[in-house]
Simulated assay, not measured.
Amino acid sequence: MINGKKVLALIPARSGSKRLPKKNKLPLGGKPLISWSIQAAQKSKYIDEVIVSTDDVDVAEIALKHNAIVPELRPKSLSSDASSSLDVLIYVIDKFRHNSDIIVLLQPTSPLRKQIHIDEALELFFEKSANSVVSVTPCEHSPLWSNFLANDLSMKNFIEPEEIKRSQDLEVFYRLNGAIYIYDIDDLMLNKKVEYTENTFAYIMDNKFSYDIDTQLDFDVVEALVGAGSFDREFE
Protein backbone atom coordinates (compact mmCIF):
# COMPACT_ATOMS: atom_id res chain seq x y z
CA MET A 1 0.00 0.00 0.00
CA ILE A 2 1.16 3.52 -0.76
CA ASN A 3 -0.50 6.74 0.42
CA GLY A 4 -3.47 4.69 1.59
CA LYS A 5 -3.92 3.11 -1.86
CA LYS A 6 -3.89 -0.66 -2.40
CA VAL A 7 -1.52 -1.86 -5.12
CA LEU A 8 -2.02 -4.95 -7.26
CA ALA A 9 0.79 -6.35 -9.42
CA LEU A 10 -0.15 -8.29 -12.54
CA ILE A 11 2.35 -10.52 -14.32
CA PRO A 12 0.95 -11.76 -17.67
CA ALA A 13 2.52 -14.98 -18.93
CA ARG A 14 0.72 -16.75 -21.74
CA SER A 15 2.21 -19.94 -23.16
CA GLY A 16 2.28 -19.04 -26.84
CA SER A 17 5.59 -17.52 -27.92
CA LYS A 18 6.69 -18.12 -31.48
CA ARG A 19 10.13 -16.50 -31.41
CA LEU A 20 11.22 -18.06 -28.11
CA PRO A 21 9.01 -21.01 -27.15
CA LYS A 22 8.26 -21.57 -23.45
CA LYS A 23 10.30 -18.50 -22.58
CA ASN A 24 8.50 -17.70 -19.32
CA LYS A 25 9.74 -20.92 -17.72
CA LEU A 26 13.24 -21.03 -19.20
CA PRO A 27 15.92 -21.27 -16.47
CA LEU A 28 17.80 -18.02 -15.95
CA GLY A 29 20.43 -17.84 -13.25
CA GLY A 30 19.12 -21.02 -11.66
CA LYS A 31 15.43 -20.08 -11.57
CA PRO A 32 12.58 -19.81 -14.10
CA LEU A 33 12.38 -16.53 -15.99
CA ILE A 34 8.97 -15.60 -14.56
CA SER A 35 10.19 -15.99 -10.99
CA TRP A 36 12.46 -12.94 -11.39
CA SER A 37 9.45 -10.66 -11.83
CA ILE A 38 7.43 -12.38 -9.10
CA GLN A 39 10.23 -11.92 -6.59
CA ALA A 40 10.82 -8.28 -7.57
CA ALA A 41 7.12 -7.57 -7.01
CA GLN A 42 7.10 -9.40 -3.68
CA LYS A 43 10.11 -7.41 -2.46
CA SER A 44 8.38 -4.12 -3.25
CA LYS A 45 7.42 -2.24 -0.11
CA TYR A 46 4.21 -1.00 -1.74
CA ILE A 47 2.70 -3.97 -3.62
CA ASP A 48 -0.05 -5.79 -1.71
CA GLU A 49 -0.88 -8.70 -4.04
CA VAL A 50 0.91 -10.38 -6.93
CA ILE A 51 -1.29 -12.10 -9.52
CA VAL A 52 0.07 -14.22 -12.37
CA SER A 53 -2.25 -14.55 -15.37
CA THR A 54 -1.32 -17.58 -17.46
CA ASP A 55 -2.82 -20.36 -19.55
CA ASP A 56 0.21 -22.59 -18.90
CA VAL A 57 -0.14 -25.19 -16.13
CA ASP A 58 3.64 -25.35 -15.62
CA VAL A 59 3.93 -21.57 -15.27
CA ALA A 60 1.01 -21.60 -12.84
CA GLU A 61 2.79 -24.20 -10.70
CA ILE A 62 5.99 -22.14 -10.72
CA ALA A 63 4.06 -19.03 -9.69
CA LEU A 64 2.32 -20.85 -6.85
CA LYS A 65 5.63 -22.22 -5.59
CA HIS A 66 6.84 -18.63 -5.40
CA ASN A 67 3.71 -17.64 -3.41
CA ALA A 68 2.09 -15.63 -6.18
CA ILE A 69 -1.68 -15.74 -6.67
CA VAL A 70 -2.94 -17.75 -9.65
CA PRO A 71 -6.72 -17.44 -9.38
CA GLU A 72 -7.40 -19.50 -12.51
CA LEU A 73 -5.91 -20.54 -15.82
CA ARG A 74 -6.41 -17.74 -18.31
CA PRO A 75 -9.34 -18.30 -20.72
CA LYS A 76 -8.41 -19.29 -24.28
CA SER A 77 -10.05 -16.11 -25.55
CA LEU A 78 -7.29 -14.13 -23.82
CA SER A 79 -4.41 -16.44 -24.76
CA SER A 80 -4.11 -15.96 -28.51
CA ASP A 81 -1.69 -13.81 -30.49
CA ALA A 82 -4.53 -11.34 -30.99
CA SER A 83 -5.06 -10.83 -27.25
CA SER A 84 -3.64 -7.56 -25.92
CA SER A 85 -2.25 -6.61 -22.54
CA LEU A 86 -5.19 -4.23 -22.19
CA ASP A 87 -7.63 -7.12 -22.63
CA VAL A 88 -5.89 -9.03 -19.84
CA LEU A 89 -5.70 -5.97 -17.60
CA ILE A 90 -9.42 -5.28 -17.87
CA TYR A 91 -10.33 -8.94 -17.36
CA VAL A 92 -8.16 -9.30 -14.25
CA ILE A 93 -9.43 -6.04 -12.76
CA ASP A 94 -13.04 -7.05 -13.40
CA LYS A 95 -12.64 -10.43 -11.70
CA PHE A 96 -9.84 -10.09 -9.18
CA ARG A 97 -9.45 -6.42 -8.26
CA HIS A 98 -10.06 -7.01 -4.54
CA ASN A 99 -10.49 -3.28 -3.81
CA SER A 100 -7.12 -2.39 -5.34
CA ASP A 101 -6.65 1.21 -6.47
CA ILE A 102 -3.51 0.87 -8.59
CA ILE A 103 -2.37 -1.88 -10.93
CA VAL A 104 1.27 -2.47 -11.86
CA LEU A 105 1.86 -4.52 -15.01
CA LEU A 106 5.20 -6.35 -14.90
CA GLN A 107 6.15 -8.30 -18.00
CA PRO A 108 8.11 -11.45 -17.12
CA THR A 109 10.44 -10.79 -20.05
CA SER A 110 12.12 -7.97 -18.08
CA PRO A 111 14.00 -9.98 -15.44
CA LEU A 112 16.62 -7.36 -14.56
CA ARG A 113 14.03 -4.90 -13.29
CA LYS A 114 14.42 -4.61 -9.49
CA GLN A 115 12.06 -3.85 -6.63
CA ILE A 116 13.64 -0.42 -6.23
CA HIS A 117 12.56 0.44 -9.78
CA ILE A 118 8.99 -0.59 -9.01
CA ASP A 119 8.96 1.42 -5.79
CA GLU A 120 10.48 4.51 -7.38
CA ALA A 121 7.98 4.33 -10.23
CA LEU A 122 5.10 4.13 -7.74
CA GLU A 123 6.51 7.08 -5.81
CA LEU A 124 6.68 9.04 -9.07
CA PHE A 125 3.06 8.08 -9.74
CA PHE A 126 1.99 9.87 -6.56
CA GLU A 127 4.49 12.71 -6.85
CA LYS A 128 2.99 13.61 -10.23
CA SER A 129 -0.64 12.78 -9.34
CA ALA A 130 -0.47 10.63 -12.46
CA ASN A 131 -3.03 8.49 -14.21
CA SER A 132 -0.22 6.29 -15.45
CA VAL A 133 3.54 5.83 -15.31
CA VAL A 134 5.56 3.94 -17.92
CA SER A 135 9.22 2.93 -17.76
CA VAL A 136 11.62 4.12 -20.45
CA THR A 137 15.34 3.96 -21.09
CA PRO A 138 17.70 6.10 -23.19
CA CYS A 139 17.98 4.97 -26.82
CA GLU A 140 21.25 3.18 -27.44
CA HIS A 141 21.46 4.88 -30.85
CA SER A 142 19.86 8.14 -31.88
CA PRO A 143 16.86 7.72 -34.21
CA LEU A 144 18.14 10.82 -36.00
CA TRP A 145 20.80 8.56 -37.49
CA SER A 146 18.24 6.15 -38.95
CA ASN A 147 15.94 6.31 -41.97
CA PHE A 148 14.31 4.30 -44.71
CA LEU A 149 16.46 3.03 -47.57
CA ALA A 150 15.52 3.44 -51.20
CA ASN A 151 15.21 0.32 -53.34
CA ASP A 152 18.52 1.11 -55.01
CA LEU A 153 20.16 1.49 -51.53
CA SER A 154 21.09 5.10 -52.20
CA MET A 155 21.73 7.04 -49.00
CA LYS A 156 20.82 10.40 -50.45
CA ASN A 157 19.15 12.43 -47.68
CA PHE A 158 19.54 9.50 -45.29
CA ILE A 159 20.69 11.87 -42.55
CA GLU A 160 19.69 15.51 -42.46
CA PRO A 161 22.77 17.79 -42.75
CA GLU A 162 22.12 19.39 -39.36
CA GLU A 163 22.25 15.95 -37.71
CA ILE A 164 25.72 15.08 -39.01
CA LYS A 165 27.49 15.69 -35.74
CA ARG A 166 29.14 13.75 -32.93
CA SER A 167 26.79 11.28 -31.22
CA GLN A 168 27.44 12.88 -27.82
CA ASP A 169 26.19 16.19 -29.21
CA LEU A 170 22.81 14.78 -30.24
CA GLU A 171 19.71 15.23 -28.10
CA VAL A 172 18.90 12.24 -25.89
CA PHE A 173 15.94 10.16 -27.06
CA TYR A 174 14.10 7.59 -24.93
CA ARG A 175 12.25 4.38 -25.76
CA LEU A 176 9.78 2.18 -23.93
CA ASN A 177 11.62 -0.67 -22.22
CA GLY A 178 8.64 -2.87 -21.32
CA ALA A 179 9.56 -3.24 -17.66
CA ILE A 180 6.91 -1.29 -15.70
CA TYR A 181 3.42 0.01 -16.49
CA ILE A 182 1.40 1.60 -13.66
CA TYR A 183 -2.26 2.59 -13.99
CA ASP A 184 -4.89 4.20 -11.82
CA ILE A 185 -7.53 1.46 -11.93
CA ASP A 186 -10.59 3.73 -11.90
CA ASP A 187 -9.19 5.83 -14.75
CA LEU A 188 -8.26 2.73 -16.78
CA MET A 189 -11.69 1.15 -16.32
CA LEU A 190 -13.46 4.41 -17.15
CA ASN A 191 -11.66 4.85 -20.49
CA LYS A 192 -10.95 1.17 -21.29
CA LYS A 193 -7.87 2.15 -23.24
CA VAL A 194 -4.17 2.76 -22.75
CA GLU A 195 -3.00 6.13 -23.99
CA TYR A 196 -0.19 8.59 -23.38
CA THR A 197 -1.54 11.90 -22.10
CA GLU A 198 -0.34 14.88 -20.09
CA ASN A 199 -1.02 12.73 -17.01
CA THR A 200 1.24 9.91 -18.18
CA PHE A 201 4.80 10.23 -16.87
CA ALA A 202 8.05 8.47 -17.70
CA TYR A 203 10.09 6.57 -15.15
CA ILE A 204 13.66 6.45 -16.51
CA MET A 205 15.66 3.25 -16.08
CA ASP A 206 19.30 2.60 -16.89
CA ASN A 207 19.98 0.53 -20.02
CA LYS A 208 21.59 -2.26 -18.00
CA PHE A 209 18.24 -3.03 -16.33
CA SER A 210 16.21 -2.62 -19.52
CA TYR A 211 16.66 -5.88 -21.40
CA ASP A 212 13.40 -7.25 -22.81
CA ILE A 213 13.67 -10.93 -23.71
CA ASP A 214 11.92 -11.73 -26.97
CA THR A 215 14.40 -13.92 -28.85
CA GLN A 216 17.04 -16.53 -28.09
CA LEU A 217 19.72 -13.90 -28.60
CA ASP A 218 18.05 -11.65 -26.00
CA PHE A 219 17.96 -14.55 -23.56
CA ASP A 220 21.59 -15.49 -24.20
CA VAL A 221 22.72 -11.90 -23.57
CA VAL A 222 20.81 -11.63 -20.29
CA GLU A 223 21.99 -15.08 -19.23
CA ALA A 224 25.58 -14.00 -19.82
CA LEU A 225 25.05 -10.81 -17.82
CA VAL A 226 23.48 -12.70 -14.93
CA GLY A 227 26.23 -15.31 -14.97
CA ALA A 228 28.97 -12.70 -15.05
CA GLY A 229 27.36 -10.53 -12.39
CA SER A 230 27.44 -7.64 -14.84
CA PHE A 231 24.47 -5.84 -13.30
CA ASP A 232 24.10 -4.53 -9.75
CA ARG A 233 23.21 -7.14 -7.14
CA GLU A 234 22.77 -4.63 -4.36
CA PHE A 235 18.99 -4.78 -4.73
CA GLU A 236 18.71 -8.58 -4.57
Rank of each mutant, 00 (worst) to 15 (best):
L112W: 11
D186H: 11
N199Q: 14
N151K: 12
K5N: 01
G178W: 08
S80D: 04
L106F: 00
S37K: 13
T200Q: 07
G4L: 10
H98M: 03
L10C: 04
K95G: 01
R74S: 11
S100A: 15
I180F: 01
L217S: 11
A68V: 13
F231T: 15
E160D: 10
L176C: 00
V222G: 11
L122N: 07
S129Y: 05
R14G: 04
N131L: 10
L26P: 01
H66D: 08
S142Q: 05
I38K: 02
L78G: 02
V50N: 07
S79T: 11
H66W: 01
V70P: 02
F201Q: 06
S110I: 07
S110Q: 09
P108Y: 10
P108K: 06
L106E: 01
S17Q: 13
F96P: 01
Y183Q: 12
Q115I: 04
D184W: 12
I180H: 03
K208I: 13
F235D: 13
Y211V: 06
D218C: 11
P138K: 09
V59Q: 10
I47S: 03
F126I: 06
P12T: 14
D184E: 14
N99K: 14
D212T: 08
V226L: 05
S53K: 00
P161N: 09
D206S: 15
F201S: 04
S135L: 06
N191Q: 15
P161V: 09
G16E: 13
P21L: 05
R19V: 05
G30S: 10
K193A: 01
N131S: 13
K18S: 14
K156M: 07
G30I: 11
M189N: 02
P111W: 00
L26K: 11
S83F: 09
V194W: 01
N24Q: 06
D169V: 02
G229Q: 08
